Measured scan of single mutants.
Amino acid sequence: MATGGRRGAAAAPLLVAVAALLLGAAGHLYPGEVCPGMDIRNNLTRLHELENCSVIEGHLQILLMFKTRPEDFRDLSFPKLIMITDYLLLFRVYGLESLKDLFPNLTVIRGSRLFFNYALVIFEMVHLKELGLYNLMNITRGSVRIEKNNELCYLATIDWSRILDSVEDNYIVLNKDDNEECGDICPGTAKGKTNCPATVINGQFVERCWTHSHCQKVCPTICKSHGCTAEGLCCHSECLGNCSQPDDPTKCVACRNFYLDGRCVETCPPPYYHFQDWRCVNFSFCQDLHHKCKNSRRQGCHQYVIHNNKCIPECPSGYTMNSSNLLCTPCLGPCPKVCHLLEGEKTIDSVTSAQELRGCTVINGSLIINIRGGNNLAAELEANLGLIEEISGYLKIRRSYALVSLSFFRKLRLIRGETLEIGNYSFYALDNQNLRQLWDWSKHNLTITQGKLFFHYNPKLCLSEIHKMEEVSGTKGRQERNDIALKTNGDQASCENELLKFSYIRTSFDKI
């Protein structure tokens, strides 16, 4: 039985969820670079991206490699990797027998973001014989899940209580170790020597080791999670996991709180800001991140802002960003909400898709409305799209047979046209069989910064309504002859009103 693990408890099935942008060198404390989270699957090609990484700022997932063999891993080693800020997950990587050479110096898994409450997941690794993470000293947050690894031993010899604050939620089941077939031998045991430290858990006094050649490092209890030197002297209180010299914040392997210019500090002093819960960055760093993602459509890219001495992905609820200094300031009234469309555009074809934009005031991208039916549609669209004030790209209304009016965009005031449909149009209306009105132009103002209007096959939309939009939106004169079809717009509506004058002759039985 794995020490510190839980057996036999019912657990939810383990679901495996399925960018080499360097964020800056980590400095003297770390020998390499800070790398983003990685999802490495199918083959070993991307694994080489770990070569210079000291910190993975995010998670590391290595999974679904069915053609790899043990010899493929023999020359692979990433000794610079010290810390993973989120979680480490391995799933069905064939041929991998140990992690001792792959990650010989991995010391800390912070667990800032977890995989279903777990910071370390080893699942269905069919050839893994031992973990071998002999320098792993601290899992700051989260638990361990090690399950269905039929060859995995050296679990009962690990004292997880020396690595985690609590072992109650560890789930370590259905491994070879369960069948008591392992016969784990710690260093020196074969020669009758006791080389590794022994600890007591559940009444068992057991030597602690990761492999037959690597003991588990056990520091004096007084050192807590700070770690200790090879001689057993406690590291500085700002260290986490390990250090090369005692009581020196510049000799830590990793930091308990924050890293700044080669030393570990309790908090980031001005003019620095907390970033990702582990390091200090200056304003320029946060500003660069903001600008890199301002026009990016890459998933996970955030326009970072500053709030409460932190550089964070977005302002919290009730705050909006001051564009001059990136500071989050309290909103006066309802907060603006910028919604970034991942692929640059979004099609609204149902109430469900409209709900995804609920509360958005600025759309960074283009909207395509293609709704053919739905219950209580006008009210639903207004509830979900009615706060949109600005669209950076274009607005396209296409084959939306259920629409009679666009009044559900009740606050839309600006279409920038930074991206144009077919390279020309910022407003595009095609084949809307029941569209009769755009907006009530006596109450609604709309500016279209650039781009043209396109109207074709809107049989109940009168040309007068379209011409009014040209005047109000500032697009009059931009359109070419064929942009607004004269014969297919309003051709099934009563669009022309003329005053009919009647004269009559009164007659009676005795007068003409």
Rank of each mutant, 00 (worst) to 15 (best):
H48K: 04
F258W: 08
P70I: 07
A230H: 11
V34T: 08
K191N: 15
M137T: 08
H214A: 14
C209K: 13
G37Q: 13
Q276I: 07
K176T: 15
S296P: 05
I163E: 01
V121R: 03
V55Y: 08
S225Y: 13
L106V: 03
K217A: 14
L99N: 00
M65I: 03
N325L: 07
C280L: 01
P336L: 07
C252M: 03
M83G: 03
V55N: 02
L60D: 01
H302E: 08
S237K: 05
H127R: 03
F116I: 13
P330Y: 15
P313L: 05
R141L: 08
N117Q: 09
N135G: 14
P187N: 12
E130F: 12
L63P: 00
K80H: 08
L240A: 07
Y304K: 08
N322L: 14
D288F: 05
P336T: 06
G300V: 08
E181R: 11
C215V: 09
S143F: 06
N43W: 09
L29V: 05
N117I: 07
H28Y: 13
C331M: 06
T329R: 12
P220F: 02
L327E: 13
K251I: 15
E124K: 06
F205N: 15
E207K: 15
Y259P: 01
N308T: 07
C223V: 01
P246Y: 06
K310A: 10
G95K: 06
H214W: 14
D159R: 07
G37R: 03
L106S: 00
N295W: 05
A156R: 11
L326V: 05
N309P: 03
D177N: 14
Y87V: 00
C264R: 00
L260M: 02
T68R: 13
Y118A: 14
D165G: 12
P316M: 07
H214K: 01
C293P: 02
G111D: 00
I163A: 02
H307G: 03
R298A: 12
K129N: 09
E97K: 11
L164H: 07
T229S: 11
P336S: 06
I82K: 05
S112V: 12
G262S: 11
H59W: 04
N325Y: 05
T320V: 08
V55I: 13
C219T: 02
T211Y: 06
V144W: 01
P249E: 03
G95M: 02
P334T: 12
L81Q: 00
Y273G: 02
T68P: 07
L106R: 00
L102Y: 01
C252V: 00
L155G: 13
F116Q: 02
G333L: 02
C182A: 12
R145M: 05
D178V: 11
H212S: 04
Q61E: 13
C293V: 05
R208E: 04
T329G: 13
L326T: 05
L131T: 10
L29W: 11
P270K: 05
P334V: 15
C53E: 00
L106K: 00
L326F: 14
N242F: 08
I109S: 00
N170S: 06
I62L: 06
W210I: 13
G183C: 14
R297M: 09
T320D: 08
Q216S: 09
G142Q: 01
D39S: 10
R145F: 08
K148D: 13
G111E: 00
S323D: 15
F66T: 04
H307L: 05
F115H: 02
N282D: 01
T68L: 09
F103V: 03
E97T: 08
G58S: 01
G142D: 01
H302D: 11
C239P: 00
C196R: 13
F116R: 06
G232H: 06
H236Y: 03
E33R: 12
D75R: 04
M83I: 13
L76M: 06
L63M: 07
T221P: 09
C234V: 01
C264G: 00
M137C: 09
C196N: 03
C235M: 00
T140Q: 08
N43C: 01
A156N: 15
A119R: 00
D169W: 04
R279K: 07
G192W: 08
T320R: 08
E238L: 04
K80R: 09
N135E: 04
E97Q: 15
A156T: 07
P70R: 12
I82N: 04
V305M: 12
C293S: 03
C301L: 07
D178T: 09
L289M: 15
E97M: 04
E238W: 07
D159A: 07
I84V: 03
Y154S: 09
T211L: 15
K80L: 07
S213L: 10
F66V: 13
C182Y: 02
V265H: 12
